[in-house]
Amino acid sequence: MTESTLTTTTHRPAKSSFWKAIAAVAWKDLAAELRSRELLSAMLVFSLLVILIFNFALELDIATRRSVTSGVLWSTFAFAGTLGLNRSMAIEKDRGCLDGLLLAPVDRSAIYFGKVISNLAFMLIVEAIVLPIYSVLYNTNLFQPGLLLVILLGSVGYVAVGTLLASMAVQTRTRDVLLPILLFPVVVPVLIAAVKASGGYLTGAPMTDILPWLNLLIAYDVIFTAIAFMVFDYVVEE
């Protein structure tokens, strides 16, 4: 093999192999989770507990429910999300899996996007279970296409930043407590926009009121996916 072909194969993998690498990383996480179910069950039970606590903290009767449902939902998702993100990166770090992943001859951003996809999948699964339970418990119909779109967009933004910060947090001494402290202040725009847009859909607000929040969510998603894509190399570099 000549030197030029060697560099092409090691440093510039073909496009299809980039997608394959992303799929492989995501699939590895999903398969491991399918067997252990550690992460999903923890996130799910935690979400239900948070809702239970809110129920008594806020006295979720019919009158208050209308105005606070979106806030309760997003607080639940945000708290459960940090649990999942922390765990998902901690297992990589604990058993030296991250070093193994980094040794693989693929673009490092493929690892990032793979992790984002698996984290997003976990979050969406938890949300897909919490929504019907919440709907039944409080007799509110949460299955509206607009609301589902907001939840998808909000989760994408949350996970895009969360995955990046979780990979930093697990490499520190205080890793168990650090992630929410790093994540919440920078993810505030997502939470504001998501709460407002969800609340808009739930109270039947006109589309003109909801649209700015949707735009904000989309802008945040695009900007932070791009930033994380650019800086992820620096976060996993040894």
């Binding site: 930043v161 910060l165 920078v186 993810v187 800086v231």
Partner: peptide, 11 residues
């Protein structure tokens, strides 16, 4: 630190 200030500066 640099990554986090960058994320903060944009957010």
């Amino acid at each position: 630190g640099a990554v986090y200030t960058l994320v903060g500066a944009v957010s």
